[in-house]
């Protein structure tokens, strides 16, 4: 039996031609035009802080009396550093909503954000070696 055959793609070729109109109808739950999707909370909102899923958040203060219940819950959760993804999971709130909450908390200096280390064109070998070391202990 021969396996099905794939064709390699090249970097930057991800602006495909628009799908032919009148193609196969979308299956249920399938979204045909991702460009036309809007993240809830992303519409009409103001500035949003540059927050990654793995930005680490640490509370700088106890929740003030003026804090909303969501803000208070968030501040309690990140008494110790916690990623935005974990905050989203524990709060059962979408990532984008947590981002909005954090934008306010950052502006009022109630939390600190520790930026992630992201992929560079040439990766930091020391970083990769540290990760390998950590994995070896697993």
């Amino acid at each position: 039996m021969t396996p099905p055959q794939r064709q390699r793609r090249s970097p930057g070729s991800d602006r495909p031609a628009a799908p032919a109109p009148g193609g196969a109808p979308a299956k249920e739950g399938e979204v045909r035009n991702p460009e036309r999707l809007f993240v809830i909370g992303g519409e009409g909102g103001g500035e949003r802080a540059d927050i990654d899923l793995v930005t680490l958040i640490v509370a700088r203060a106890d929740p003030p009396v003026s804090a909303t219940p969501e803000q208070a819950a968030l501040l309690r959760l990140c008494a110790a550093p916690l990623s935005v993804a974990e905050l989203s999971a524990y709060l059962s709130l979408p990532f984008s909503v947590v981002t909005v909450l954090l934008t306010d908390l950052l502006a009022s200096e109630l939390v600190q954000a520790r930026a992630p280390i992201v992929r560079q064109k040439v990766a930091d070998r020391n970083l990769l070696e540290a990760v390998m070391h950590g994995l070896q202990k697993l």
């Binding site: 979204v31 036309r36 999707l37 993240v39 974990e86 989203s88 059962s92 979408p94």
Partner: peptide, 14 residues
């Protein structure tokens, strides 16, 4: 853990 994202799809199109 699970993180979720919810989005809406604009219903206006060709």
């Amino acid at each position: 853990l699970t993180t979720e994202e919810t989005m809406t799809q604009a219903g206006i199109g060709v």
